[in-house]
Simulated scan of single mutants.
Amino acid sequence: MGNSKLLNNGLHTSSKPEDEVLLHSPQNPMATLPDADVWNRFRSGDEASFIYIYNEHFQALYQYGCQFTCIQELVEDAIQDLFVELRQKRKKITIKTSIRFYLFKSLKRKLIKLLEKRRKDLPYSPQPEYAAFEVTFSIEQRLIESQMHIEQRQKLAESIKKLTPRQREAIYYFYYENMSYAEIQKLMDFTHIQATRNLMYRAISELKKHLLVVIPAFIFN
């Protein structure tokens, strides 16, 4: 289900057709605003800000949700619930970092609850556990820049699979979503930021051990 279809499925808006064109346009003035300003507009009841937040983050949320489960409907339902809840509680919600970080943390919490409920209802369900975190992330731009051969990309994919689930999750946040160590710490519920750094160090060291001979070192910098 695409983001526009999901938006219209229970998340009706009052925007006009001509407004929709602007909202999807790179010329949208909100694209130049800091997250705090966009969020404040949203909290004040600005519908255009709500639609902008949805369209801006839907694809990333969907890809992120698919790291936890292959059940697409479950991911879509969780995203739908998340935005319905945002609209209902907009005046009570504040963000301390970025909008995407807040959405990721909220979606992760919802998905874990849904998956736990599903496993209780269907104890013999073959669906993957949360801990698997089957990362399908890519460092596409860096791979393109390095002009990696097909066998090198395959080697990278194989090496990522050898990482622990937590290492793959941290790598996803750091390389794919460009999150800071502080944000990763909160998303992964570490008590101290040093634990995040240690996890990233072990993950990158493991990848280097397998890949440095075939992949340029700058990928890991």
Rank of each mutant, 00 (worst) to 15 (best):
Q185D: 09
L187I: 07
L211F: 07
S180H: 14
F190D: 03
A195S: 15
M148E: 02
A195M: 12
Q152W: 07
R168C: 09
A195L: 10
K162V: 10
S205A: 03
E183Q: 15
I184K: 09
S159N: 07
I150P: 09
A182I: 10
E158T: 06
V214L: 12
K186S: 14
N178P: 07
Q152L: 06
K161V: 01
M148L: 14
K155D: 09
L187Y: 06
K155W: 08
R168L: 05
V213P: 06
H210P: 00
E151M: 08
P216E: 10
Q154L: 13
I184F: 05
P165W: 05
S205F: 06
Y173K: 07
K208G: 02
L163M: 05
K186V: 14
A157Y: 14
Y173C: 08
S205Q: 01
A182S: 13
E206K: 12
Y201V: 01
M200V: 01
A170W: 03
E158Q: 09
E158P: 07
E158G: 10
V213M: 14
R202Q: 05
I184Y: 05
Y175K: 14
Y172N: 10
Q194K: 14
H149Y: 13
I150V: 13
Y175E: 10
A170G: 09
M188D: 08
M200Q: 04
I215F: 06
M148G: 07
H210K: 13
S159G: 00
F190E: 04
I193Y: 03
Y172I: 03
L199K: 08
E169W: 05
F174I: 04
V213G: 15
K155I: 01
L187A: 00
F174C: 00
I193E: 11
R202F: 00
K208W: 06
Y176T: 14
Q152C: 01
T164F: 03
Y176G: 02
V214S: 15
Q185C: 13
L207N: 02
A157I: 06
M179I: 04
K155S: 13
Q194G: 10
A182N: 11
I171V: 14
F190A: 01
V213H: 15
T164K: 09
S205P: 02
R166C: 07
P165T: 01
L199F: 08
I215D: 04
H149R: 15
R168I: 02
I215C: 04
K162M: 06
F174Q: 07
L163H: 06
E177F: 15
Y172K: 00
Y201W: 03
I204P: 02
I150W: 14
V214P: 04
I160G: 05
Y172P: 02
Q194E: 15
